[in-house]
């Protein structure tokens, strides 16, 4: 099949960017979206042009590295799917496709479609952990965790840290990402001791990074490749209120 691609090109963080059009032929419907871009890059390389920079690593939907907005939707049209697992059979021959990077102030562009997401690491550093040094853990079965609690914590922990929630949010808010981490650890008895401190510090770090504010529109939930529910945001709101008002 054949496609008309409009791709964001930006030579560097400070340089101005623009959409560039590419006509690409010879695409197989079995290709993944990223393999389609590989094909385009091979073609550009053969023509002596510079290939398009885009991030990907595991290409099986778990590392969270790939980050493309396709026709206005982070990770593209398939629900619960990262762009590396999106296949070309979901597109029509001759279709026009717009490909853009994640757009948010905390995600500055490195080049073309590659963004810098270290802001998320900094939010994690602010409190996304249980403070337990190696070697100091009690026997794993000495702390019981109910099956339902474990399942719920897992649901939050499934976050791959891709940042699609931020890219999708009308306000570029990082709430779903932070809420997922706060909830994952806050739900488990192991993380309970630091629950108040964690939520306060992570929210503070999130605010400092310049993410937008949540206005409960739930675009994040709709695009999250791991389908993490916004109920975790409510949970974080509750924790934060408790932490701000009552904890020392």
């Amino acid at each position: 099949m054949k496609l008309i691609l409009h791709i964001w090109r930006q030579p560097g963080p400070k340089a101005p960017g623009r959409m560039e059009r590419f006509d690409l032929d010879g695409i197989s419907e079995h290709m993944s979206f990223l393999e389609m871009l590989d094909l385009l890059n091979e073609k550009l390389t053969a023509e002596g042009k510079e290939p398009i920079a885009f991030d990907s690593d595991c290409r099986e939907g778990i590392c969270g590295m790939c980050s493309l907005v396709i026709n206005g939707v982070p990770h593209g049209p398939e629900k619960g799917t990262t762009v590396c697992q999106l296949h070309m059979r979901h597109f029509r021959d001759g279709q026009e496709i717009w490909i853009e990077p994640w757009r948010a102030k905390p995600f500055p562009i490195v080049k073309d479609l590659v963004v810098d997401r270290s802001s998320m690491d900094r939010v994690m550093a602010a409190g996304g952990y249980v403070s337990v040094n190696a070697g100091s853990a009690p026997d794993a079965n000495s702390v019981l965790v109910g099956k339902d609690t474990a399942e719920q914590a897992f649901e939050a922990a499934a976050c791959i840290g891709c940042g699609a929630c931020v890219a999708a949010c009308k306000n570029a808010s990082g709430m779903l990402f932070v809420a997922a981490k706060v909830s994952h650890l806050g739900l488990l008895p192991q993380g309970r001791e630091e629950r108040m401190r964690r939520v306060r510090r992570m929210v503070e770090a999130m605010d400092q990074e310049g993410f937008g504010n949540c206005t409960n529109q739930y675009e994040c939930e709709a695009t999250c490749p791991k389908e993490i529910p916004v109920a975790f945001i409510a949970r974080m709101n509750r924790d934060f209120l408790k932490a701000a008002l009552f904890s020392s």
Binding site: Y129, V130, V132, A134, G135, S136, A137, P138, A140, V143, V145, G146, K147, T149, A150, E151, A153, F154, A157, H184, L185, L188, Q190, G191
Partner: peptide, 11 residues
């Protein structure tokens, strides 16, 4: 160690 760090193992 992993359980103490909050790894949500199956239960």
């Amino acid at each position: 160690q992993c359980a103490a760090m909050g790894v949500p193992f199956a239960r």
